[in-house]
Amino acid sequence: MIPSGEPAPRDPFNPAPDSGQVDPSSHDQAAPGSEHVEALEREIRELRNLETARIQFLALVSHELRTPLSSILTYAEALDDGTLGDLNPSQHEAVDSIGRAARQTLEMVDEILRYSRSGGQSAELRPETFEIGDLVEELRASHHSLLARKSLEFRTTIERGLPDLYADRSKAVHVLGNLLSNAIEFTPEGGRVEIGAESADGGGWARIEVRDTGVGIDPEDRERIFEEFVSVDEGVERRLGGSGLGLSIARRIVEMHGGDIGVESERNRGSTFYFTLPTVRYDTAAPAAGGDRESAGET
């Protein structure tokens, strides 16, 4: 809690213009005295408390929403399967819609919970060595039915000799899975989704891309979509889907690894989301022969 008499708490992500936050341009002013240092330390403590409270609040919300969701899903299922009597076709459609909306809400609730967990101070990376190809194959399998439902072509292009990744595998699954789900959702039927991986930054890093032939993203939205709980126009909201947290979690994970994440896109010509993760360094091993190994398949 903020003691009375202290400055009012501020949202660290939306500081007011006159918030008194450190202004880099003021460094040439008088050297900070102990009072100034104490004020800054107090401010840092307050911001940390605020962030902790925010994370706890999100966790609480995501837990509490599970009880009403149980009621909604129970009734939707029992009405749909006839346990509570027969429905006419319009009623069936309405109940189906309720069930789908509840499942979507549950996905958002899960996403908020993951976000709140990843935002805590205890969020740690557990890096291990693994092949990017295995990761891609795992995600292709788990997204198989979604790809098939929209008759999307799925291709992979992985650079031959690309070293294994050295990263937190479960978090890498989350990032790539999120990008792949978005690509599938926003690519029209019969389109193409592609995952590529190649070495980057002269070695030591892999650049992983998810390319789609979807609607694309306007230039002014390309940075904003990585912000959390961003208030966006309808187009981007559709692009994001869900809670608007998936990409902000992905960015947080990639940045925890020291990597970059971003998007290149042209309106109506598709998007390429990319991120970088560290690879294993083979100091004594000769680099493998160059060239791409390409596999393509319709899913």
Binding site: T67, P68, S70, S71, T74, Y75, A78, T83, L84
Partner: peptide, 16 residues
């Protein structure tokens, strides 16, 4: 303790 969920389970489990 949630009345709605208690009723939902009671109604549907009874029907089942």
């Amino acid at each position: 303790d949630d009345e709605d969920l208690r009723n939902a389970y009671r109604i549907v489990l009874s029907a089942l």
